[in-house]
Design a protein around this nucleic acid. Sequence first.
DNA 1: TTGCCTACCTAACGTTCGTTAGGTACGGTT
DNA 2: AACCGTACCTAACGAACGTTAGGTAGGCAA
Lengths: 191, 191
Amino acid sequence: MAVTDTVDTTSARQRILDTTAALVLEHGVAGVAQRQIAERVGIKAASLYHHFASKNEIVEAVFRRGIDVMEHAWDDAATAATGAAPRARLAAHVRAHLSALFENGPYTAAHVTAFRTAPTEVREAVVPMRDAYEARWTHLLTELDGIERPGLSRLALLGAMNSSVEWFDVDRGNLDELAEVITTQVWGSTT
Amino acid sequence: MAVTDTVDTTSARQRILDTTAALVLEHGVAGVAQRQIAERVGIKAASLYHHFASKNEIVEAVFRRGIDVMEHAWDDAATAATGAAPRARLAAHVRAHLSALFENGPYTAAHVTAFRTAPTEVREAVVPMRDAYEARWTHLLTELDGIERPGLSRLALLGAMNSSVEWFDVDRGNLDELAEVITTQVWGSTT
DNA sequence: TTGCCTACCTAACGTTCGTTAGGTACGGTT
DNA sequence: AACCGTACCTAACGAACGTTAGGTAGGCAA
C-alpha cells in the first residue's frame, strides 16, 4: 500500500535495518562496519548510501525502531489490561516489554544494549524517545500505588528486564515464566 | 614491596589499565583506540607495547581486574556476614556487588557493560572467571533457601544490579538505599 | 667506563574505516 | 523513441586503525 516507495526499496531498507540491528546487538555500534552490513544484505557498501545518508543515520533508525517496538508493546498491554487489578496490569506490561525484547526482531534488544556506545549525536537524537518510554513506567508504578520507591524500583525493574537479553534464550526458556519472576520481584507474590 | 617491577613500571601499567577501563565503559571495546588510551596516559601509542603485547591483552587485563574486584568484594561480605540471618547475608552480598561496581574504579563496571562487545578471543579467555563468580551467587541463593527459583532469580538480580551502572550516580544517590531496594526485590521486606 | 635494561620515542607499515564521485542497467512514463 | 528515477555498481579518497622496526636517553651494575 506504499504510495511513495516501490516494493523493492522498502524491503532493501528493511533488510539493512534488520541486519544492522542484529550486528549492533552482537558487537556494539563501533564494532560494526558498513561493509559488514552490506555483505550480509547482499549489496556493496557504497550502495547503502542510496538508502541512508550515513552510518549514524542507519544506527539511529535502528534505535528509533527499537523504541517504537517497545511503545507498541506497551499500548497493546495497556489495552488488554484495562480495568484489571494492579498486579495484573503490572504483569501485562512486564510481559509486553519482554515481548519487545525477544519477539519482534533485534531492534529493542539492540537499543537497550548498545545505546550507551553510540556516538553522541545519535544518542542525543534518540534520548527524548527513550525518556518518554521511561516516563510511562514511572507513571504506571506510581499509579499502581503498591510500590514503595517508584523511581528506584522502575530503574531496578527495567534493569532486570533489559539485562535478560544477555542470557535469556527464547527457544529454551519461557517468557511467561520469566515475566512472572520479575513481576514478583517488584510487586511480591500473587495478591 | 614489588620485587620484580620498578615503581615506575607498575604505575604506568596501572594508569594504562585505569584509562582503558574508563574509556571502554564509555564507548565499548571497539570504540576505544590505543592512541586515545596513550594520549590520556601521556605517552605515545607505540609505547603501550612496552607494557602489553596487544590491545586485546590490555582489554583482557581490564576484564580480569573487574572480576577480581567483584570476588574480593564477595569475600569481604562473606566474612562480615558470617553467621548472620539469611536476608542479612543476601543484603551484604548485594551491597558488596554494588560496591565493586561503583567504589573500586571503573573495572567492574567496564566488565559488566562491555564484555559482550569484546572480540571472541578475549571473551573466551575471561568466561571461566565470570562463570565462577556467577556460581557463587547461585550457590548462595540456593543455600539461603528463601527464594523460589534461584536460577532465574540470580539472573534477574544480577541484571538489576549491573544495569544500575547505566543510571546510578554515586555522588547523588545512596548505595545503601539502592542495595536495600534490590534486596527487597529478591527477598521481600525485612523478615 | 663500558655495557645493559627500562621506558619511552619517531616513523612507518598494511589494513580497514566511512564516505564520495561517477558510472550502468533497467522498468515506467511521456 | 527519448527520457527519468531507482537501485545498484566500481574505484578511489583521506583518515584512522593496530602494529612493527629501529631508534634515544638515563639509570644501574660490573
